[in-house]
Amino acid sequence: MKISKNNAEHYIWGDQCDGWRLVKNNDLSIIHERMPGNTHEVRHYHHHARQFFFILSGTAVLEVDGERIQLGSQEGCEVPPMVPHQMFNETNQDVEFLVISQPASRGDRVLAEK
């Protein structure tokens, strides 16, 4: 079945951010996310999930274990399990990106302290 933002399961997270579940399996998750300007995710880590964040449009900052990594369009970064991370959109423009998790990260998220 062909999948897109138009027919994928949609949800809202954080402060008016969007997510579309493109692949939703226990062993693999692919989510297309949109963060409006000046929003951020909470700092967290996953016990089992390895994640790859890939920017489709816009610019984001991915904080990985205390290191801030600026990611532009068509750039990505891998985050291993047990490593605290947090996504920021510090611009006035939307940022859209893919989050690929293996295994799926649902139920595997733990809030992290700074």
Results as ranks from 00 to 15, higher is better:
Ile69Tyr: 12
Gln86Val: 02
Asp94Val: 04
Asp94Trp: 02
Met87Ile: 14
Ala8Met: 05
His46Pro: 02
Gly37Pro: 01
Arg43Cys: 10
Asn89Trp: 04
Leu111Ile: 10
Val64Pro: 00
Ile3Gly: 06
Val99Gln: 02
Gly66Met: 05
Gly19Thr: 00
Glu9Cys: 03
Arg34Val: 13
Ser101Glu: 08
Arg34Glu: 06
Val79Ala: 01
Ile30His: 01
Asn6Asp: 15
Ala60Arg: 03
Val23Arg: 00
Val110Gly: 06
Pro36Leu: 02
Ile100Pro: 02
Phe97His: 00
Glu78Arg: 14
Met1Val: 12
Thr39Ser: 07
Val95Phe: 04
Ile12Arg: 14
Glu63Thr: 13
Phe54Tyr: 15
Glu96Thr: 15
Val110Leu: 09
Ser29Met: 13
Asp65His: 06
Val23Leu: 12
Val95Trp: 01
Met87Arg: 00
Tyr11Lys: 13
Arg106Leu: 07
His46Asn: 12
Asn7Glu: 05
Val83Trp: 06
His48Tyr: 14
Glu90Phe: 13
Leu28Val: 14
Gly14Lys: 04
Trp13Phe: 15
Gly72Asp: 07
Thr39His: 06
Asn38Glu: 07
Ser57Gln: 15
Tyr11Asp: 14
Phe52Asp: 05
Val42Cys: 12
Glu113Ala: 08
Pro84Ala: 10
Lys114Gln: 15
Gln74Thr: 11
Ile55Tyr: 04
Asn7Phe: 04
Glu90Pro: 07
Val83Gln: 07
Glu67Gly: 06
Glu75Gly: 01
Asn38Thr: 02
Pro84Met: 08
Thr59Leu: 10
Ser73Trp: 06
Glu9Leu: 12
Tyr45Trp: 09
Glu9Val: 09
Phe53Tyr: 13
Glu75Arg: 05
Ser105His: 12
Glu96Phe: 03
Phe88Cys: 05
Leu71Ile: 10
Ser101Met: 07
Ala104Phe: 02
Lys24Asp: 14
Arg34Thr: 10
Met1Glu: 15
Ile100Arg: 00
Pro80Gly: 06
Lys5Arg: 13
Gln74Phe: 12
Glu63Ser: 10
Val95Glu: 03
Met87Gln: 02
Glu90Tyr: 11
His85Ala: 04
Ala49Ile: 07
Leu62Asp: 00
Leu22Asp: 00
Ile100Val: 15
Arg50Ala: 14
Phe97Ala: 03
Ala104Ile: 02
Trp13Asn: 03
